[in-house]
Design a protein around this nucleic acid. Structure first.
Lengths: 197, 197
DNA sequence: TTCACTTCTTATCATAGGTCAATGCACATC
DNA sequence: GATGTGCATTGACCTATGATAAGAAGTGAA
């Protein structure tokens, strides 16, 4: 299977050489999902990290009233999973499904150990990626604590211009923590501002 | 210096034996801060992780209007830092100061490497802690996206009963993303509910 | 074509939570 | 005892955003 993005990830971010990549190549497991298909459903135990080779995934929770709260989108080169569920073998509270037809690489403890054996630097590189992820989550929390819907939307557009174009607006509203109607209003107000200036 | 909590952390969470602990003991650096003193100021580069031996710290950002958004409290056994600033050597956007007089252990790359050398398991244990931290952040985002001030407050009380008793109410309001006035109202409504039932 | 379905928008009304100002309390300092 | 400072509460008012309902535009299937 041809996985240019995943190969690039292991080589550039994971620090593997081309030869080292081919050493672990045979262990790679992939999974295809079509639009609206699930990779993880609430209540089941999450067994893998999913690396997105191509496509778009979403990671979301359902609150008491059944409303979806989108916690994360994942496009090419992102890794998504319910880490708590993996590490503590607990049923997940989250769902992962596909917004576009998507090809993922399934990573588990076994594969990660195999890669780390081939190149011990891999684990450390991965830790840096984790730290960076935490940093992004803090930034998001900071915006949710203190910024208006308008500011959060502008930040989203600036940070993820690519995602903007690939997911419906009501999902972006969910990611931002507002209703689709409010987001529509925010956008209207912004276009009016643009005309004035 | 007597550091029972840090010792326990390295042995229980880090997987070190007692002897291994004494091997790295001499490398430990500590820092004391009094109430309202800073460990990290916006604009400076964060050089360490801070393990709280005893006391309470807060980690916060200032938004455009100068309002504080508290991202994290840290009591005994927590580790706090601006990970982005450490790893990318960039000036931080965050502040860390002490809510009580606090004794911290300063961890840097050098110390972590030393511990990992003594016990290779340490890095892996730490990664699990990181994954767990990410999980908590997702939970917090989920609440910020979908839950009312009341629900967020009740969740906080349940999750951090100890912190409740040690930090002023206006800081909890900031952590929850509401004004002190609103939190006061939420609390009043809750006591009324209690009387009725 | 027509129908069903989804997404986005618009309008109206309702409300949680923000803003501002005043008060009361606990504590410290003089 | 008098005074000042920080925090929590309360009240009156305001605003951003939610809720509900309806319509417009696009898309795909029958």
């Amino acid at each position: 299977m041809n996985l240019p993005n995943f190969k690039k990830y292991l080589i550039e971010k994971g620090g593997l050489s081309e030869e080292e990549y081919y050493q672990v190549n045979s262990l790679i497991q992939t999974k295809k999902v079509q639009q609206n298909e699930f990779l993880l459903k609430e209540g089941s135990i999450c067994s893998h990290f999913f690396f997105v080779e191509h496509g778009v995934l979403r990671f979301y929770a359902l609150n008491d009233q059944g409303k979806e709260n989108i916690l994360q989108f994942a496009t090419e080169n992102w890794i998504l999973s319910d880490r708590g569920s993996i590490f503590y073998k607990e049923p997940s509270n989250y769902n992962i499904d596909a917004i576009e037809d998507t090809l993922t690489v399934m990573l588990d403890e076994h594969f990660i150990n195999a890669v780390a054996k081939v190149n011990p630097n891999f684990r450390k590189q991965n830790e840096i990626l984790l730290q960076n992820h935490i940093r992004h989550l803090y930034r998001r929390i900071s915006l949710l604590l203190g910024a208006s819907a308008k500011v959060r939307y502008l930040d989203f557009v600036k940070t993820y211009p690519d995602i903007m174009l690939r997911v419906p607006q009501w999902m972006i509203a969910s990611y931002l923590g507002v209703t689709p109607e409010s987001l529509s209003r925010v956008r209207k107000a912004l276009t009016n501002e643009d005309f004035k200036s």
